[in-house]
Nucleic acid binder design. Sequence first.
DNA 1: AACTTGCGAAACCGAATGGTTGCACGTATA
DNA 2: TATACGTGCAACCATTCGGTTTCGCAAGTT
Lengths: 106, 106
Amino acid sequence: MRRDVFQAIADPTRRGIIILIATQAMTPNALAERFDTSRQAISKHLRILTECQLVKQEQTGREIYYHLNATKMKEVADFIEPFRQMWETKFNQLDNLLSNIKNNKK
Amino acid sequence: MRRDVFQAIADPTRRGIIILIATQAMTPNALAERFDTSRQAISKHLRILTECQLVKQEQTGREIYYHLNATKMKEVADFIEPFRQMWETKFNQLDNLLSNIKNNKK
DNA sequence: AACTTGCGAAACCGAATGGTTGCACGTATA
DNA sequence: TATACGTGCAACCATTCGGTTTCGCAAGTT
């Protein structure tokens, strides 16, 4: 099935998985211990993350280590980035407002 | 209902709405003309965007203009940002690899 | 060879999603 | 006042989602 990165990160458990494997690759069993769900449920999340290429598999023996493919995260960053100016200039406007109030009080 | 920004941007139509109203506030009717769905469907999307505070309403007469609240987008940026180094250093490694090959050929 | 371990896939289930149609209500206009 | 317009809301529907339980299979272990 055609998967979408935005849909993949919509689920909080999947965001948790992403954060966990960012620093170190992990197996489904190891991941399942960190969440309050079954291994199979984690496996389904990993399937979704794999389908949209947010995650890569690396099999060693009967264990499968899941790595993060951070490059794919760039798609989200590209969507967000155009709006960065908007919220940062908003803070600047607030700063200006505050400094104006400060100057008036003098 | 408790809404989540990540879930809000998971839908492509909602991302389209966000992009459209980023530059200029728009009414539901005006938005509906830009998509291949009914006005009511757009209205439901706007409700979801409003509930997670990605969007603000401004009523003038019988028209309601929807503005983007870009500040809320920062929540997504905060999640993405820690991974930026990972994909950027990956590009750097590729650059190093390429320059090494180039040097060896000399 | 028999057993255990780690894993994915399939079947099933309740809840949520995204869409539609029909309606109600306030606001402008004739 | 009667009519048209802009909008949100409720009811309904097919599909998807996230979870569980059960199973099959390959890889180690005894």
